[in-house]
């Protein structure tokens, strides 16, 4: 198995409120060259899980394996794209993409790799621009190019299109699909949008909350490009929606109870 998440638990220790368990015993196996989405309501720990794969969050219990290697810290075998582009404003677009390649490749080689990936996201024209001169969607494309330039084994994406407007999001969906087909990277994609997950993924993992856990695992066997009005898409959307409704209601009820307890 390519990426293995084994009995993983995340607990935050808080001195005042005691410990808080985000999720426990999460088991997940992901195959190579697959596009896998993790879908769930806020608070289910999906982003935390992704950060643990990236090595940015510590693992309280359990292990994560990428190939034969145990994940202990961040490294270039896992590229990550965040909700915020997090481009370095003091570097040009090209130099941003080159950043992870410093000390790994020769100078001309780095330039070539950067050019190739900027072409992939259709930003060759802006290679000498600075991040503040680009729109949010363009910045996010640079961030994708930057993550791919270091040729990671897996691309981690944490709600990468969450801060963009609808039109831009659709354009970037199409671009990401093209990139996925071209590079055949393994992609782990966190989102709270059911439509986005079904549109893009080979497989959708649904997480529930309180406690965080995996509640369903769908294979999306619908040929791409997927249309929103495809009956199979609508059917799957409904099914996931009803699953999530239970989870969202749980959160709402808890909040209302809390409110009732504290209102006189």
């Amino acid at each position: 198995m390519f990426l293995q998440i084994k009995e993983v638990t995340k607990r935050f220790e808080d001195q005042q409120e005691g410990s808080f368990e985000v999720f426990s015993g999460v088991d997940l196996k992901i195959e190579k060259n697959q596009f896998v989405s993790i879908l769930g309501p806020s608070g289910c720990g999906k982003s935390t899980l992704l950060s643990m794969v990236a090595g940015l969050e510590s693992i309280t219990e359990g292990t994560i394996f990428l190939g034969d290697e145990k994940v202990t810290q961040p490294d270039t075998d896992r590229g990550m794209v965040f909700q915020q582009p997090a481009l370095f404003p003091w570097l040009s677009v090209t130099d941003n993409v080159i950043f992870p390649l410093k000390g790994k490749l020769a100078k001309d080689e780095r330039k070539k790799v950067a050019a190739k990936h900027l072409k992939m996201v259709h930003l060759t024209r802006f290679k000498d621009s600075y991040p503040h001169e680009l729109s949010g969607g363009m910045q996010q494309r640079v961030a994708i190019a930057r993550a791919l330039a270091m040729d990671p084994k897996v691309l981690l994406m944490d709600e990468p299109f969450g801060a963009l407007d609808e039109q831009t999001r659709h354009i970037l969906h199409d671009e990401l699909m093209k990139i996925f087909e071209e590079t055949k990277k393994t992609i782990l994609f966190v989102t709270h949008s059911i439509q986005e997950a079904i549109k893009l993924s080979d497989r959708v993992i649904v997480m529930g909350t309180r406690p965080g856990r995996i509640i369903a695992d769908f294979s999306v066997d619908i040929e791409r490009p997927r249309q929103r009005d495809d009956l199979r898409v609508i059917e799957m959307e409904k099914e996931i929606m009803s699953l999530l409704k239970v989870e969202i209601n749980k959160v709402l009820k808890e909040e209302l109870d809390h409110e009732a307890k504290h209102t006189y």
Binding site: P74, R78, F99
Partner: peptide, 8 residues
């Protein structure tokens, strides 16, 4: 965070 995922 971004820099750390790039091995820095």
């Amino acid at each position: 965070k971004a820099a750390r995922t790039m091995g820095s």
